[in-house]
Design a binder for these strands. Structure first.
Lengths: 199, 199
DNA sequence: GTCTATATCTTGATAGAC
DNA sequence: GTCTATCAAGATATAGAC
């Protein structure tokens, strides 16, 4: 904050990343062009390669990791809504259904489409998405353990809940209906109840 | 089968669709080129537009619907392995984990990547993926009802199981590990048990 | 119906003036 | 650091010989 220039620099860079987050979630990695990102960020085309000399892959990796960190915090916030992990998780799912409507069925998960696209085609980006998913699962597992789920089951339970959410988003976007997410809410509750019972 | 020519015609068309199925599952819709498909199908480039005058969208729609129909049969076959819907579903998940390894973590679901890519960008293809997902869910719901799940819960249960499978595939491909699918196997069993208990 | 050549457009990326 | 012009390669799609 010592001079206006560096602040402006930061802001341009930030606008590019933010534009990338929004476009990748709507159109995916291959479906989004660098020019499109520059335009959406209201930044000159050359600036993208100034800030991201590694090109599209570097930008995408930063987009994945940045939005991954934002959502990691979101997991913590959402799960704090109740001491009961069943209630907290079910509430998070119904909240996600509202988000889906607000976004007009753009992907509520900023990295899902990219994750599927790059899984077999770009090792560096695949690893980035893997680490982000892993961070969400680890955090959720810790919260479930604190909520009474046996430690031996917490990780598998957390992974299944994230899988349920991602899959429900996929079905919901395809159908343009929140019904799959609401159905998944009840299913997630059942999964956690079984884990709490030690099964 | 009255003459060799028309049979050969069918075969070329079929090879194109089959190549599309394989490439779309690895590289997605925007990530796969028409030339790439022609080459993989060992067909002349012009043949694609001869058989699919509607271009890439028409070909993709046929790929989605064709592979959707194949997998609809697969659902039936897999679920016939046991009279108990819990066992049959859990077995299907562990079998899917093996398939994932055999495919070297290419997408076992032929339409997942495409579904996310087109959900917000191509209405015609979105509808095709929606109808395919719906057909799987309806079929699975009918089998669950036959297996003792209350009719009022069968559809939501089936949708949740499909969501769990699709989400587990996503996490598994990103991590290049079958662990998420194996974890989801237990979770799916818990979801169905809860439904059988009427909850 | 098969196959090749090509038209047109868009992509990711670079060079260089300012 | 900003911005424009441009490159080479890729895309989808078409035209037309055979």
């Amino acid at each position: 904050m010592s001079d206006g220039k560096s602040t402006s620099t930061h802001e341009t860079r930030q606008r590019i990343v933010r534009a990338g987050i929004e476009l990748f979630r709507r159109s995916g990695y291959t479906g989004t062009g660098m020019k499109q990102i520059a335009e959406a960020a209201d930044a000159p085309f050359g600036s993208i390669y100034h800030f991201f000399p590694g090109g599209k892959v570097q930008l995408a990796e930063e987009v994945v990791r940045t939005s991954g960190a934002v959502y990691l915090n979101l997991v913590t916030t959402l799960m704090a809504s109740s001491d009961d992990p069943v209630t907290a998780t079910a509430d998070a799912f119904t909240g996600a259904a509202d988000t889906l409507t607000e976004l007009d069925f753009a992907d509520p998960c900023p990295i899902a489409t990219v994750a599927l696209e790059v899984a077999s085609t770009n090792e560096r980006l695949r690893q980035a998405t893997s680490e982000v998913f892993g961070s969400w699962i680890d955090r959720l597992a810790a919260l479930y353990t604190a909520g009474g789920v046996p430690a031996s089951l917490a990780h598998d339970t957390a992974a299944s809940v994230i899988a349920l959410l991602e899959g429900a988003f996929m079905l919901a976007r395809a159908a343009r209906s929140t019904a799959p997410v609401l159905a998944a809410s009840g299913a997630a509750a059942a999964v956690i109840r079984a884990a709490l019972a030690g099964d």
